[in-house]
Nucleic acid binder design. Structure first.
Lengths: 206, 206
DNA sequence: GTCTATATGGGGATAGAC
DNA sequence: GTCTATCCCCATATAGAC
């Protein structure tokens, strides 16, 4: 609860409620996607009425934007918390694991590939774009380091690696593996990491 | 036009119009996604009025289902047309290239990962599911063959390989590479194939 | 089978009382 | 700031003339 700082009591409860709303939004977004969510759904999930929602967020798009911003902030926080001793490759492996486990736990993937509409209004939000860019720049540096270390394919351009990495965090294969493959979370994470870094082709014998 | 067979003239024009509608639907689906398409959009694109659309397809969901079915049929046709001399790995490489080029040309990815809603009603359609399953079984055999040949990672289960492969055909990385990476189609296909089969990690020296 | 015109319903957003 | 009740747009789907 440290994020509350020294707010007055009323402001604290306000912040807490806002976070509860964002939690519900995140959960519903993961489950149903933007277009299938109604503001009534969110209100019901939080145990609030719809008009109260609009006191906190001025529109559905604004609400979702804030949820996405919070998610990127969490990713940034996760990166910063990694110990300096970690190799670049380990950083990426762990970040992928973190993102996958967030999803498997009912959270959201942090790339809005799901909907052209969502992508459109997110890129309109300066606050979102700023954070996304910051994350992108940090990871770009990690990728450069990893290539220099010989931990990532130096023949691939950085952006190819990065976009592929992002795509793995929101890969629909995860849902299919859980639904039809009946794997548990650990197995799914392991397989996704394996495919992400080594592909589906034959690997060199170790 | 051989698909028209020996239909009477009226039935032929009917079939042709139906195909034009499906073409428009496919194009719009790729561009905007299911939720953002309106039946007016489709009608305008074909040069028809909305009620006429409903003479051909009884609902928006039905329309989209038919478009997806046609797409899976095209994938099946593409597979069958491959020469017997092709290795299993080559079959997969070429199928991936085919799917990616369909997308890059304004077409649709053949996995409905885009929307929970779309996935829901597609899996309700027996005709769609039947075809999707047929494609899945065919590819499962190809994967088994490739593993036996030492062309694919034998340590990965078939379904992990297959779902990963499907995901590459509708990978959002493609759009990002085109939009922000400024790669041409050939480069995008090459990079996506490279990442799909060898991952982003260090590759063995050749 | 094609059109113009219209019905229907759902969901985003708000008015106004408390 | 929270609620109940309501507005109103928009998109799916249809009625009915030709």
């Amino acid at each position: 609860m440290s994020f509350l700082g020294k707010l007055r009591f009323k402001d604290q409860t306000f912040k807490l409620r806002e976070n509860a709303i964002l939690d519900a939004t995140t959960k519903l977004l993961a489950a149903k996607g933007f277009d299938l969510i109604t503001m009534d759904d969110v209100a019901d999930e939080v145990g609030l009425s719809k008009p109260s929602l609009y006191k906190h967020f001025k529109s559905k798009e604004d609400l979702v934007t804030e949820a996405m911003i919070r998610l990127v902030d969490e990713a940034l926080a996760y990166l910063e918390q990694q110990p300096d001793t970690m190799s670049p490759l380990e950083r990426l492996r762990c970040l992928l694991e973190w993102a996958l486990r967030v999803r498997l736990g009912g959270g959201m993937p942090f790339l809005p590939s799901t909907s052209a509409h969502v992508r459109a209004f997110l890129t309109q939000s300066l606050r979102y774009v700023t954070r996304a860019l910051k994350l992108h720049r940090l990871l770009d540096q990690v990728v450069s380091d990893a290539k220099r270390n010989g931990e990532l394919a130096s023949e691939l351009p950085n952006d190819v690696i990065l976009y592929s990495f992002y795509s793995r965090t929101c890969d629909p294969a995860v849902e299919y593996l859980r639904l039809y493959g009946k794997y548990d979370d650990d197995a799914i994470v392991a397989h996704m990491q394996s495919v992400c870094f080594a592909g589906i082709g034959t690997r060199p014998r170790s």
